[in-house]
Nucleic acid binder design. Structure first.
Lengths: 177, 177
DNA sequence: ACCTGAACACCGTTCAAGT
DNA sequence: ACCTGAACACCGTTCAAGT
């Protein structure tokens, strides 16, 4: 006797993202997600292996949206850095999750593709990958610290971010430019 | 009727650090810590407010050791970057914890002081703080990604790290150098 | 004065029983 | 074929009772 489906994997992941942002990773419980999609916790196990797998799906979905935002930004270092930072401000918990958990490798690769293109244009082919990693690592670290409140010494964070963008752009030019 | 003390706060924090590295943050349970110091879980509440506070103490202890290592490194960008990376490799869970939790602000400030000194010498006083943040953010981001396995596109990570160090050092010099 | 067993709330997960 | 109540293991935390 078939039974009607009362939810979908997409609804579960979407509920997970919403709860993550409002209640943090600790608040992302199976019961909270189940309640939000109108089902009891045990039913989630029909669509998701366990909580860890659900967290991975949430992280991948966030990484995909980050990639889409970077893709639709202008292909310059400042524009992509701004897009990156505004995403982290909009979804701080999701951003943290993507950076700490290993999300789906394919999603991470998609997200980093736009950066690689800009880096190639700026630094030239031989150092394109190293250059992309330099600017990505800086942005990840800056936002990790900003979100964690780790910039203790005050000062203007917006100015510090601009300083970073400007100097990195300069640093990526080939030495004999 | 007084009762003998069967453990100390130091022993608890030290046990916490050990369990953190061996079993991860999820494994850092009150029962595991209590067992390691030879006591039952409820006794921990005599010395620590709750699990969250214990995690904060562990993070602060790790941050203090990181600061000490940076302080004893040679005052150059490459030497401090190497010290930073080797610390993250030695204590990956501790490193992740310090970067994600807000450890004690005072500990974070102590840890970043040596970087500030080098940055001041390289970039000059007006941009010393911005420069320190640039290099610190890069190192934090690089290691966050390296530890998370987020560098998907292969290549030589040691070389990518060296590339970052070299180019950042160059980027920090005043524009008219 | 610290330590512990017992208790409670809460969560992840499994599974037999419903429809 | 999915959904749920019941059950189990495990954890954080409190507290009365021990010494």
């Amino acid at each position: 006797v078939p039974a009607p489906e009362r939810t979908t994997l997409d609804a579960i992941v979407s509920a997970g993202r919403h709860i993550l942002e409002s209640d943090g990773l600790d608040g992302l419980t199976m019961q909270a997600v189940a309640g939000r999609v109108g089902v009891k916790a045990p039913s989630l196990y029909k669509r998701v292996r366990d909580r860890e797998a659900l967290i991975g799906l949430v992280a991948t979905a966030v990484a995909d949206e980050l990639g889409a935002r970077l893709e639709s930004a202008a292909p310059t270092v400042p524009a992509m850095a701004r897009a990156f930072r505004s995403f982290a401000h909009d979804q701080p918990e999701g951003f943290r999750l993507v950076m700490s958990t290993s999300a789906d490798p394919a999603a991470l690769e998609r997200a980093s593709a736009p950066v690689l293109i800009v880096a190639r244009e700026l630094a030239g082919e031989p150092h394109a990958l190293d250059a992309a990693r330099l600017v990505t690592a800086w942005a990840v670290g800056f936002l990790t610290m900003e979100l964690a409140g780790a910039f203790q010494l005050g000062g203007d964070l917006d100015a510090a971010f601009d300083y970073g963008v400007r100097n990195l752009e300069r640093a990526l030019q080939p030495k004999d430019a």
